[in-house]
């Protein structure tokens, strides 16, 4: 029984050893350069991208390589390029990355056909058109031992593909002499059209708001603007001292504001009732008396109705502002008698 167990352990050890040896062999096959495959053994046909210019960052470039290899040479699959490997050119990352690889194998009578489909993606750009290559890929074959290749390993280099990467910037948008840093971030597209549209929309919006302000400015659009004396005060500012009729108009406007505030027609004989209902106006009781005196002179006195100068309108405008302050609950500023 023990003898059988020892034999089994030996067998496992031998298997592990052979596995390690084969792995190290494959690693060696990948890393070490091998002699070139003899001429005439490999027949290459390739389908490259249909153009070699105009590629931008992010573009996918497909390449199909067909290798028809005479027997007994066989492709070592582990030597195929690895997805994600970044090629370097003179120590610099080239910016071309293998994104996807597929391969098929078809056995013929004397040959084996390998079809390798490669998909590269461009991860670089430049302010001007930049040359680039899909790199040459080296694959290895296992063949019979020869003088150059005693272990039978030979390699074959799939030729590179030259193309041009186009810049993403518009010509002239970037001054290259001022932008030579290798750390420069990718040039962004300039949203000129969008900016112009945005500006136009903002202009229309601004004009609309101005129009709205103009329309609403003559009406009530803030809580304090719609009150009778606030409205009257705005209307009085438009009147001129030079026009005698404007004084009548101004007096009428103030009368109307008083009536609207009281909700009835206010006269000098019901001022007490008005002041008791709106005590905030008590502060300008003397001015209100003066207002009625002026109104009586202008509207009802046939002797002196035409003798008023521009000072009356100036006084009236100040009086109206005092009333506006009163209706807002503020303390009105005192003014001199007209």
């Amino acid at each position: 029984m023990n003898c059988q167990m020892n034999q089994l352990i030996k067998l496992i050890n031998i298997s592990l050893l052979s596995l390690i040896l084969s792995t190290s062999f494959l690693a060696n096959a990948n890393d070490e350069p091998s002699p070139e495959i003899p001429e005439g053994i490999v027949k290459l046909s390739k389908i490259n991208p249909d153009r070699n210019v105009g590629f931008l960052m992010g573009d996918i470039m497909n390449r199909t390589i067909t290798l028809e290899v005479k027997k007994p040479y066989k492709l070592i699959e582990t030597t195929l390029p690895i997805v994600g490997y970044e090629h370097r050119y003179k120590g610099q990352v080239s910016g071309i990355e293998l994104r996807k690889i597929n391969h098929t194998e078809k056995e013929n009578r004397d040959t084996t056909t390998y079809v390798i489909q490669l998909a590269y993606q461009v991860f670089t750009t430049a302010p001007v058109v930049k040359p680039a290559i899909l790199p040459a890929e080296t694959v290895k074959f296992q063949g019979p031992p020869t003088e150059e290749a005693k272990d039978g390993l030979v390699q074959y280099t799939i030729p590179e593909f030259y193309f041009r990467i186009s810049p993403m910037a518009v010509f002239g948008a970037v001054k290259i002499e001022e932008d030579m840093s290798p750390l420069r971030q990718p040039v962004l597209l300039q949203p000129y059209v969008e900016k112009q549209k945005l500006t136009a929309y903002l202009a229309v919006l601004g004009l609309s708001l101005l129009g709205l302000l103009y329309i609403l400015g003559s009406r009530a659009w803030l809580p304090l603007m719609g009150r009778p004396f606030a409205q009257a005060s705005r209307q009085l500012t438009k009147l001129s001292s030079k026009n005698p009729e404007d004084l009548k108009l101004a007096l009428s406007r103030v009368h109307k504001a008083l009536n609207t505030t009281a909700k009835y027609s206010v006269f000098s004989d019901n001022m007490d009732a008005f002041l008791s209902h709106t005590p905030s106006f008590k502060a300008i009781e003397a001015e209100i008396d003066q207002f009625f005196t002026l109104s009586h002179q202008v509207f009802f006195d046939t002797q002196i109705s035409t003798s008023h100068d521009g000072n009356s309108l100036v006084w009236l405008k100040k009086f109206c502002k005092q009333c506006r302050d009163c209706e807002r609950g503020l303390k009105p500023a005192k003014q001199k008698k007209a």
Partner: peptide, 8 residues
């Protein structure tokens, strides 16, 4: 009426 009719 006096309350409703304004002058001027």
């Amino acid at each position: 009426i006096v309350n409703a009719v304004a002058a001027p």
